[in-house]
Each structure stands twice: as structure tokens, then as C-alpha cells.
Design a protein around this nucleic acid. Sequence first.
DNA 1: ATGACCCTCAAGGAGGGA
Length: 263
Amino acid sequence: MRIATWNVNSIRQRLDSLQAWLKERAPDIVCLQEIKCQDHDFPREPLEALGYNVAVHGQKTFNGVALLSKLPFDEVAPGLIGDDGDVQARFLEALVSTKTGVVRVVSLYLPNGNPAPGDKYDYKLRWMDRLIAFAADRLRLEEPLVLAGDYNVIPTPLDAKRPEAWVNDALFLPQTREKFRALANLGFTDAIRAVSDDGGLYSFWDYQAGAWQKNDGIRIDHLMLSPRATDKLVDAGIDKHVRSWDKPSDHVPVWVDLAIEGR
DNA sequence: ATGACCCTCAAGGAGGGA
């Protein structure tokens, strides 16, 4: 089973690229972020035509997450526990059944948090605490669980071309990285780091300042695997070439292959 | 080089992103 995550930066602007990439990579489950539309504006039909079931947690203009799955959804639940007043659409959880058992998947869009310090950074840190609480709860189920999405976290200096440029940024501040480690320390494995210790593995290049041409990137899109998912890990990768396509998102897809029979 | 983007929307600049 192949599970992927991609911050598309507007689903309506990226539909052609998404369709092309789905045909090329053939993922079983896809976690999308920054769809930037309401549920009724999500282009369900062309994605269903490619064989995907579609679940959407949208929001006008900003944020918005979705899930695509070749397998039908047994359960779908929008929203992250811990703050009933949070109206930002950043979290969508689903359960699917395979021949050998269930797989639980979350598409998440963690707040950027800039400028830091400030209200936005406080929201980011609280959101990370809520994610840790959610993850700790779900771990008790002992299921294969994949927490996939745009974390807006640069985990280590190896994950940026110019780490010195990010030292005061909400994506790389010590508290941000501490909370990311706290999530990992619950027992979650960063899929990309499980298969490679290399530098130069990036998932985002800014549109500005020729960042892509200079390979001035950062790795902020992650697939975090529960122990039961890590047991099944076969491979993981980043589809860097997608950044060179026409009208690209500033993020590229990241994927993991698990030894679980899909479809 | 103090420069270089892209997306959304009660639609012209403003706000958000990272």
C-alpha cells in the first residue's frame, strides 16, 4: 500500500498536475493540504473517475484538507481534539479496511506560526500539543497509523539548504523542533529518515528569489508512522521532479510504501 | 542586487503563506 501527502496550494489550480501525478505514482491513499476551497467546490468527479473515494474538510479561501483513497472509507472525522472553538480546517482522520486489517490515516496541515513570538506562534504550539495528545490516544489502538501532512516543521539542520536562514523562524525555532521530537518520541517514525540519512532531501521551495533554481529548499512535509506501520515500512521517497512542472505547487508529494495489501 | 511569487476574493489591493 502506497500512502502519499501533498500540499497542493489550491486544489482548483493544481487539478491537472494532481491527475498527472496520480497516474504516475499510483498511490492508494493521498493526503492533501491547502485545498483552499469549501467542500462543495472540491473537484470530486475527476478524482472519482480515477478510482478514488474522496473525503473533504474544506474552508473558504484558506487551509482545507482532503483524503483520496482507492479503498472505501469506513470512518471519516474532521477536526483535531482539544479546542472546540478552532474553526480552521487543518485535520481529517479516516479509517480504511484492507484484507489484513485496518489502516488509520490523518491528513494534517499544521499552522505556520509566523511571526514568532506572537499569537500565531502560540496557536502553532497549542496545535502541536493537541496533535501529541491525539497521537498518544490513537497509539493505544495499536493500529498501523500514518500521520501525514504539511507539518511546517524543519526537524533538523540537515533538512534545510540554509539552516542559518531559519533560526528565528517558527518552522525551526527550538520549541517547534522540541514538540516535533515529542511526537516522534511517542513512538512515531519519520518515514523519509527511516530510509535515508542524506542531506538535500527537501519537500518545499519558495516561489520567490529563485529558490527552486538554487535548490534552496526545506523538508517540512512528513509521514509519521506508528510502530505497527513502521513494522510494514518498505520504502519512502520525495517526488522532487513535480516541482519543475508547469504551474507547480511550492510543495511536492512525499510517499511511503507499506507491506500491506491495498485495493 | 535593497531585485526576482502565488493564491483567494462582495475584485483592488490586501492578507496569507513559508
